[in-house]
Simulated assay, not measured.
Amino acid sequence: MSNNQKAFDKHLLDLLTKFKNGEATAAEIREIDQWYESQSANSGYTDQLSADEQRETMQKMLRNVKAGIRQEAVPVVKLRAYQKVKILGIAATLLLVVATGLYFGLGRQRTVQKQLAVANDIAPGSNTATLTLANGKKINLAALNNGQVASQSGIRISKTADGQLVYESIASETVSGSQPEFNTIEVPAGGQWQVILPDRSKVWLNALSSITYPLHFTGKERNVKISGEAYFEVAHNPKMPFKVHSLNQTVEVLGTHFNITAYPDEKLMKTTLLEGAVKVSAGKQTNMLVPGEQAQVSGGNMAVTKAIDVEEVVAWKNGYFKFDENLEAIMTKVAKWYNVEVVYQFEPDPAVVYAGKVSRAKNISSLLKIIEFDGDVHFKIEGRRVIVMK
């Protein structure tokens, strides 16, 4: 290997490391993408080989790369010896395996495309939800035109062009009755929605999630109830604390940004704080969180984890997946967003951790090809079922 090639390899590895850590500039990302395109353009000769021949050729290439990198690799992430990290990135096609000292890229994409068995592709989730009014009437929000949806007890409910539901007070109408009235938004699998509550607090709902809230916040507290996953930006009101109830947990705030994951079928409830302060209560335990901390509740037990990757936690709200977890955890998120059933033909190793960023706007086959990239796992799509195979 020439000195120039060694210098370029080190430069490229530095760029990839910065990209993985979220530190790459726009110019550096363009440079990486240009390198990828040049590699892809030069890999067309493999199309003349059968799938088995391509796989055998790639394995030989990987062994050679592995042998070379072991001598010169710069470790990026330190992991326990039994762990292996597969880092997914660069236009959703780049794989970087750091824990084993192995780095390789992109000519393999053509082979992977032939390995994934796709009977029919599945589109990503979209803005869709059902609103249940105080009188029990159900409204399919996705089917409505933009504009006024309903009017209840002095509140006008409108749908905006960017997929929000907005509650506004109508001064000309008089609120009648003393009994509180509630609305509920339910988001199905393969959906997401955003609502601006009557107090101007903003809530984003992930797939298979719901929120119930009053038309008017009265009394000493603002109370809402959720199931699933929701991100909150709570309007500040020191005279009326905002409380979020989920399963056996309550989160109390005055005005702040936080994310709650509280799916009934998952073992842990997680509350992650981005700004401000929150008080998390479960059973007899109570903890105050500061930004970057996460409360994890299982049953009546609570633990607080510090220095959480908040970007990973709220990636769903910002339109992408950020993985740093094992295959089953990833496929749980995939099942909710793409509205699919996941079936395993083997028991995945929980110590194998995949890390990287992938857009949630891609069809499911694009995401599965990335995970397939190093050949350890394969997928088959049958209807709305994804079969995970060795």
Rank of each mutant, 00 (worst) to 15 (best):
L208F: 06
K220R: 03
E53C: 06
E293V: 10
S201R: 03
K138T: 15
D9I: 08
D14H: 12
S158V: 07
Y344G: 03
H257P: 06
A134C: 02
G276P: 13
E325D: 13
A150D: 14
R360I: 05
R55Q: 12
Y338S: 04
E347F: 00
G136C: 01
K317R: 08
N42E: 12
K159I: 04
G356L: 09
L102P: 00
N146M: 04
E233P: 11
E347A: 12
D121S: 08
E293A: 05
A142E: 12
P214Q: 10
N42F: 07
M269V: 15
N4R: 13
E325S: 15
N237Y: 03
V388P: 03
G101E: 00
N223P: 03
S176P: 05
T111V: 13
N237I: 06
N42R: 13
D374H: 01
A262Q: 08
G101Y: 05
L289S: 10
T57W: 14
K239W: 02
L197I: 10
Y45L: 08
S366A: 14
A171T: 12
G319Q: 09
F323K: 07
S153T: 10
T261A: 02
F323N: 09
E312N: 05
L116I: 09
T218E: 11
T272R: 01
E328S: 14
E181Y: 09
D9N: 14
V65C: 07
Q152K: 04
V166D: 00
A207E: 13
G228M: 02
F346A: 02
E173Y: 00
Y82D: 09
E23T: 11
G375V: 01
S210E: 10
V244N: 08
A134W: 01
K137Q: 14
K267G: 10
A351P: 01
D9A: 15
G68H: 10
V97C: 07
I387K: 01
A282V: 15
E275A: 12
N120K: 14
K137P: 04
L205S: 09
S366E: 14
A329S: 14
Q34I: 08
Q34E: 11
A51K: 03
V310K: 01
F321S: 05
A41Y: 12
N146K: 05
N3D: 15
L215V: 13
T130W: 01
N146V: 10
S281F: 10
N21E: 15
P75Q: 05
T25P: 07
L144H: 07
E31L: 07
W204R: 05
H245R: 07
L106T: 13
V377D: 00
Y338R: 02
A129R: 00
E311L: 02
M269D: 12
V388D: 03
E382A: 06
